[in-house]
């Protein structure tokens, strides 16, 4: 099943990930961390299925536990001393809790990035930055293209060398190594010559002249506007709350958070909705599809 959040405008995708990853790094408040961890985890499972479940259980869970236990061993700040280690260093409640929060934050960032990798493909990235950084985006897209191209060209060169007995699979180990180096050397020369040719071809077709447009398949339509406005609204609520100090937590020397109130519950809901937005979009789309499909 295609992920419907990925079909939105690249700008929406990009702003969304920048927003959630920034919020996740800045707000260490436990409720915020739990919300982000759960929604990032569920979105990555929706995007990647069983592979994501395996990744989370095999790598992310041990990493979370490891990071949560390592922190109190190195960090002895905090006023609530639970017990002393053999070498006389205290273990404090604050450093344990901070360790858990930091581990949660780190794991959530990795999970968000795994979703980002699936949603923000390189063509979307180029589309967004092509207008602001045209030259760098061009280099970026050329590098992406060159890597598979060079892999293919190495195969061509190696076949040609094989027919005259100079492949990496022929001769003794010293000759093999020398043959390999020669193939790479041919490859380099070819890449550079080919690059100059490409550059001249670009120039003769008018690269860099004014008034040229670029092709893209993206359109900012009504659906995108609605989601964009919702996102901006939620971000405004969260930003205002951050300004009032609702989202922050102080770990050292003693833990202090804002008491829960109606306002803070509203903020939790707003943040929760922002985080699960792609999941909601996906599920709504799936239900719609099922509903339409069953009628046929």
């Amino acid at each position: 099943m295609r992920d419907s959040f990925s079909t939105y405008h690249p700008l929406i995708n990009f702003v969304y990930f920048v927003a959630v990853i920034t919020c996740n790094m800045v707000f260490m408040h436990p409720i915020f961390q739990v919300i982000a961890l759960l929604s990032a985890g569920s979105y990555s499972i929706l995007l990647k299925g069983g592979k994501a479940v395996r990744f989370q259980l095999l790598f992310m869970l041990p990493l979370l536990l490891l990071m949560a236990t390592v922190n109190p061993l190195f960090n002895h700040a905090g006023v609530t001393i639970l017990f002393y280690l053999d070498n006389g260093n205290p273990i404090t409640l604050e450093s344990i809790l901070y360790g858990i929060a930091a581990a949660c934050m780190y794991v959530t960032v990795i999970l968000w990035f795994s979703c980002y990798n699936a949603v923000m493909t390189s063509d979307k990235f180029i589309y967004i930055f092509g207008k602001i950084l045209p030259a760098l985006s061009l280099i970026f897209s050329m590098v992406l293209r060159f890597v598979p191209r060079y892999a293919a060209q190495i195969k061509v060169i190696s076949h040609a060398q094989k027919s005259i007995g100079r492949d990496v699979s022929q001769g003794n180990i010293v000759r093999r190594a020398r043959n390999g180096m020669r193939i790479l050397s041919i490859m380099m020369s070819w890449a550079l010559e080919n690059a100059i040719e490409t550059a001249d071809s670009m120039k003769s077709r008018g690269y860099g002249l004014p008034g040229r447009t670029s092709f893209s398949t993206y359109r900012f339509d009504r659906r995108d506007t609605i989601v964009f406005l919702i996102m901006l609204g939620l971000m405004a609520v969260i930003g205002a709350a951050a300004f009032m100090g609702q989202n922050s937590i102080r770990f050292f020397p003693s833990i202090r958070i804002q008491p829960m109130s109606m306002v803070s519950i509203m903020v939790y809901i707003a943040y929760g909705f922002l985080c699960v937005l792609p999941v909601v979009i996906r599920l709504v789309e799936d239900i719609k599809w099922k509903f339409i499909a069953s009628k046929i």
Binding site: L138, V143, V147, Y150, A191, D200, M202
Partner: peptide, 18 residues
């Protein structure tokens, strides 16, 4: 930057990535 300059940077970066 000129096309030639861009493309040489791209080639070197691609070699590093490969």
């Amino acid at each position: 930057p000129q096309a030639r300059e861009l493309i040489v940077i791209a080639v070197l970066a691609a070699i590093a990535v490969a």
